[in-house]
Design a protein around this nucleic acid. Structure first.
Lengths: 328, 328
DNA sequence: TTGAAAGCGGTACCAA
DNA sequence: TTGGTACCGCTTTCAA
């Protein structure tokens, strides 16, 4: 059996209450008492039980992270940052992977609700309304999406797309394709919106090639569709999709970037390792995680009254070998 | 405020105890009572508070997963499998990333100990003795390592190495190098052991090139060392390391597999996407996660008395473009 | 079969 | 400054 506060009280010869005070707020007990308690606690290697504590304080020191697919390298990066940041504040992290199934998100939130002080929802796929239905329970911060009235952390996709389009335009491309991600993905819509604006601003043609899964296979499936269009460059919803495109192009003997240029989004770690290395719009994944934790902590502390916080992080085009001059 | 058992009791016009019984073990109350309780519970959308329950039952329905680096794509695959499997048993998952720092593992375990029913330690880096010091607290299952007296799930590295060496031998290689991972990694020692046996069995030369971080950068750092040896093929501790090797070889204009063949370990998702695609020893990552959960559940249920369970999963060499005939 | 009451391990309030 | 005590939400004796 674990050592409890009673054991410490007995050994120190004081009451439970004093032990509690001595440990929580040393200033509120006599130095002598504090010493006795501390010595007893140390001797017994006593650590207050968080579960019991949370029952009365209502604070669990846990946060819940819900995300659609840990197999997408984007998310581990974010989760790692969340974990590290949370640990710094003595918070532990629950992880729930919903397998890209929007229907699993609300149950995932419900299941964790009593054990956490708040949620970080990464790229949630469920409808706004569904997410809002959980709003009263616990604070929620949304990453890679905006859902009123939750605080959010997003990337400046529009600017990223502007950079990518400027790059392609400078290379002589006048017709580009977009391989879209999940219809339920806010980032997808956001990126598409930015891309439309950017291409329109430069009078370029934009072909939209169907929605695919945000995976390598999804990209591979879209490759042939893209080749059937007049586009000389293709922007993918994310890097995995872009890698799928490149893979399929390679298999068909289509030269990248000779025949067609490819641009990804996210800058996952391995984007630089493929051949040709992938030109992509980088997002500060670690910052997303950190900012998410900070926002959540703030909103748990009730310091969110200044209005809904919205952090928009900058994006940065990373030019690598998968983009080149448009074919003549 | 959330709805509690009292609210249900009041609405149903029965005592707390009856509500508890009716919900936990319907057979122990009169059908009529059960109906009243069920209706009331349903109407109020009552869900028992797991935290409060765990305080008295001692079961949290949570498991803790501790791993060294989520940025290594191997781990997300395992975690995803763990998550999925755990959800099936109504368990939630705590995740703790220790950043390859052995000193963080025991604190991570301690921090979670009260909130979980058991631990899944993925490739722990801490010393056996340190890990054992936590043994009394909660059941532990170790993945990718063996630590007496914990149940474990490992891959059959020796057989994987045998397959890889047979493959290289058939291609004419007689001298191979091994780029080792962290000294603290059991898998690293296990793989090296298997490799030594396999090369010795065929009378091949084995050069061991220092220990590096199990990352792309680590591999890149080892590339030049490898080229300074007579080896015509190199086996890397894991795929990330192998990709780093290939990257650096590429940068130096060294042909893979023309001048040197490269073999990885793990078969991470993106191994197939690089050019040349990576020949690697595949591990059933999802099975590791699933088996881990199953073993942990068994040991939590106390069904572990038959002795320490050790599941060893098969490995499978996947031959791709990064290996070819030895240069003449 | 049911209800009352005692905890699980803490925290917080109140009176002393 | 300290100790006694109620209570967080639930489960589990123990009587009735």
């Amino acid at each position: 059996m674990a050592v409890t506060i009673k054991d410490v009280a007995r050994l120190a010869g004081v009451s439970q209450s004093s032990v509690c005070r001595a440990l929580a707020d040393p200033a509120r007990v006599r130095p002598e008492t504090r010493d006795r308690v501390e010595r007893a606690a140390h001797e017994l290697d006593y650590h207050p039980n968080r579960v019991a504590r949370s029952l009365i304080t209502g604070r669990t020191l846990n946060i819940g992270v819900v995300l659609p697919d840990l197999a997408n390298p984007f998310f581990p990066s974010v989760v790692k940052a969340i974990q590290t940041r949370a640990r710094g504040f003595d918070y532990a992290v629950f992880l729930s992977d919903t397998d890209e199934d929007p229907a699993l998100e609300v149950p995932a939130i419900r299941a964790l609700a009593e054990q956490v002080d708040g949620f970080l929802l990464c790229s949630p796929r469920a409808a706004d309304e569904e997410l809002r239905s959980n709003a009263r329970e616990k604070p929620i911060v949304v990453l890679n999406r905006r859902v009123t009235p939750f605080p959010s952390v997003t990337a400046d996709s529009a600017d990223g797309m502007r950079q990518a389009v400027a790059h392609l335009h400078a290379l002589g491309h006048r017709s580009v394709a977009y391989v879209a991600g999940p219809r339920t993905s806010w980032s997808n819509r956001d990126r598409l919106r930015g891309l439309r604006a950017a291409t329109a601003a430069r009078g370029m043609d934009l072909v939209e090639a169907g929605n695919v899964a945000p995976t390598v296979d999804g990209g591979a499936a879209a490759a042939d569709l893209v080749l059937a269009t007049p586009a000389t460059a293709v922007l993918a919803y994310n890097d995995l999709t872009a890698l799928g495109l490149i893979q399929r192009f390679h298999a068909r003997g289509v030269d990248v970037p000779g025949r067609i240029s490819v641009v990804g989004f996210d800058d996952i770690h391995l984007a630089a390792l493929v051949v040709p290395p992938l030109t992509t719009v980088a997002i500060a994944k670690e910052q997303i995680g950190r900012a998410g934790v900070d926002l959540l902590l703030a909103s748990m502390a009730g310091r969110d009254s200044t209005g809904t916080a919205r952090r928009v992080l900058p994006t940065q085009l990373i030019v690598r070998g998968s983009t080149g001059p448009a074919p003549v």
